[in-house]
Design a protein around this nucleic acid. Structure first.
Lengths: 110, 110
DNA sequence: TCAATCGATAACCATGCGGTTATTGGTTTG
DNA sequence: CAAACCAATAACCGCATGGTTATCGATTGA
């Protein structure tokens, strides 16, 4: 399957679960890993990890690569770009309104 | 109540719902508003909006100010800072590993 | 070939979540 | 004071979610 663009909903939701975020962090930090390796550090069962990985994949946050009987997963941190964009946009909106207010106060002061 | 620091879980979870994100976006864009005004654009009932606002407040994303019989809510976009930090950290981790790989390949090339 | 391993899926369960309507506590206003 | 209004809470409902164990298909190794 192709790399998915993923919606804000899916991105935020995928990262809102601590177990899932832990898996993604591990992948970012230590690079590609098998489901087995990820299960070791996850604190939940292997099927649970598989389900989490499926969700991360749907959100575009990880890639999978089949190799024999094992599946290797890797992080795709550029999938976080929309999240940074959105965050920046919100902050800018707010900043803009703040600037306007400052202007107004300055004009009133004169 | 004091301004809450809020965990990653709460931040991501609060923003994973489209209705809630819509409310927060409106507050960032248009500034302080009453529950009534927010309800108008939200597409859900007033109690639903109140519940969403409570969740945003718990995540530290909004502030409320009581004035007579109406409550005014406003965005607190600096609450997004941890989110940006986390995102940046993940990207840096990944970049670091990538750089190491590049180094290795360069050394092997000589 | 047979046993073991890997990872995904199925089936199930408890809990949480987003929505609703009804109600309540305060606050204005007529 | 009574009526209207605002926002929060209560009580409920359906469904999604995160977890489990059991199983299955595929692959590897003895």
């Amino acid at each position: 399957m192709n790399v998915m663009p993923a919606s804000y909903d899916m991105l935020f939701a995928a990262l809102s679960d601590p177990t899932r975020r832990g898996i993604f962090e591990k992948l970012c930090h230590d690079g590609e890993q098998t489901v087995h390796a990820l299960t070791a550090g996850a604190g939940v069962s292997q099927p649970a990890v598989s389900k989490h990985l499926a969700i991360l994949k749907q959100a575009g946050l990880v890639l999978d690569r089949r190799e024999g009987r094992e599946t290797h997963y890797s992080a795709r941190p550029d999938a976080l770009a929309p999240l940074m964009d959105w965050t920046g946009r919100m902050t800018r909106f707010w900043q803009k309104r703040f600037d306007k207010l400052e202007d107004l106060l300055k004009r009133m002061d004169q």
